[in-house]
Simulated scan of single mutants.
Amino acid sequence: MADTFKFELVSPERLLVSETVTEVVIPAMLGEMTVLPNHAPVMTTIKPGLVTVKFASGETHKYVVFGGFADIVQSGCTLLAESASAADDITPDDLQKRIDAARSEIQEGNHHHEHLTKLEKHLYELTNLHEVLVAA
């Protein structure tokens, strides 16, 4: 049997995953990051994107996250998401609503330059995620 580690995906609403896995691909802020057993300890921020989980059983499942943090240690990985769902439960319309809300917030103005830059980056990430899900 391949080496495994414990993976947990937690959102404020619920614990989505708490399983033994062989690999997890997370949307780290600087790009996709593959977590394997015995990974060096890392803590990273997560951008909106897909998390791909390969379970010890051989099954692969995808989840959509909307930001958060991942804490990776040799024995496991915990992803604390601002919001998360199984990818099959997210529709393009759900994402479009988030995109529209981000656009409205940008257009409201009265933002400090740094906050506006973060909002624009968030909008860009949501738009990319929308394209990935529509293409799937």
Score class of each variant (00 low, 15 high):
V53M: 03
H111C: 10
V53D: 01
E32G: 09
A81Y: 01
E131A: 15
D89S: 05
F66K: 08
T60H: 04
K97G: 07
S75Q: 13
S57N: 05
I90H: 02
S75P: 05
L119P: 02
K118G: 09
L95T: 01
L79R: 00
I46Q: 08
D100V: 08
P37N: 05
D94G: 00
T34M: 08
H112I: 15
Y63K: 03
P48I: 09
L133F: 00
N128R: 12
F66N: 08
V65C: 04
T60R: 11
E114R: 13
C77A: 01
L50G: 14
F55C: 03
L133I: 02
H115S: 14
T44L: 05
V64K: 04
A81W: 02
A81D: 07
H39K: 01
A135F: 06
S85H: 15
I90Q: 01
F69Q: 12
M43S: 08
H111A: 10
S57V: 03
L133T: 03
M43K: 02
S75N: 14
G49M: 03
D89F: 10
K118Y: 14
M33H: 12
A86G: 10
E120D: 08
P41H: 03
S85R: 13
E114F: 13
H130M: 12
E59M: 12
E105R: 14
L123F: 05
V35S: 07
A70H: 00
Y63R: 01
G76V: 07
T117R: 15
M29N: 15
L79N: 06
G58E: 03
A102C: 03
H39T: 04
A102V: 03
E120I: 15
V134E: 06
G109C: 00
H39N: 02
P27E: 02
H130E: 11
Y63M: 05
T34N: 12
A101G: 04
V132A: 13
P27I: 06
K121Y: 14
V73M: 07
R103W: 05
L123R: 10
D93W: 09
H39S: 01
